[in-house]
Amino acid sequence: MTRSPIFETFRYAAILIALAITLVPILWMASMAFKPIPEWQATGQNLTWIPKDPTLDNFRFIFGESSSNLIVALDRTAVQPIVASLLASVLGTLIAMTAGTAAAYGLSRYGSGQNLPLALLQLRLFPPMAVMIPVMIMWAFLGFMDTWWGLALIYGIVTLPFAFWLMKTFFDDMPREIEEAAMVEGCSRWRVFTRITLPMMRAPLASAALFVFILNWSDYLIALLLTTREWVTIPVYMASLSSSMTGQLYGAKAALGLIAAVPPVILGILIQRHLVRGLTFGALKQ
């Protein structure tokens, strides 16, 4: 299409501004993560945008190697919070994907569970804060408080709507002829599902699982309420990275923030194609 040069200039200018606004906060955090103490403590005029003297000290610090310049030692390193985040997110994703995929298939092919689409949408509609009291009581009763598996269970339930809706649209889009042919060949319905449908849906399953993983990994509020010490997740742990003597440990926070932020950003870019579908509960396909 013939476009005026003025439009092209405007387009690039606008996009460059948007890119700058998008990137500056992220790059600032990345830059902080590699700054030595004097640089990340600097304020006002002394701010450095790019570390003058890049170092891995902040990363060493959160993993327990006490820095000679910081007179604080962590009573806990970031290792267990990272493990907690990983375990809870992975098991949560597994729960959501298993229950969600099975239910989506049951509804898509056999019309079972007609109540689920709306029920799960409602589940997403409500602020988690508004159901946390009963959940806290139940979790305490079940001995799930401050455990990664307790966290995983609630993660699995909270992200179940996404898993279900995503997989439902994938199953709805999938042609049924192959399944029908297999059934005519004498394959049982269960075998068709496990041996034919699921292997064929490997790619969509992977995308949906990554999407659900990102959501679980992103949680803060639930972990804040359900974990207290042993199994706190990364974002909850980050709050403890301050000391009465030096105040906020920006460098350490930035380093851990970077560790927390990188996986979902990379995964998100990997599953770009399915993001719209996932975020709109399959209402929109790209």
């Binding site: 099975a102 239910a103 179940l160 599902f193």
Partner: peptide, 13 residues
């Protein structure tokens, strides 16, 4: 089969 497949999700809900 449909009922069984949707059961886990129903229980969680």
């Amino acid at each position: 089969l449909g009922f069984r497949l949707t059961l886990p999700a129903q229980v969680l809900v």
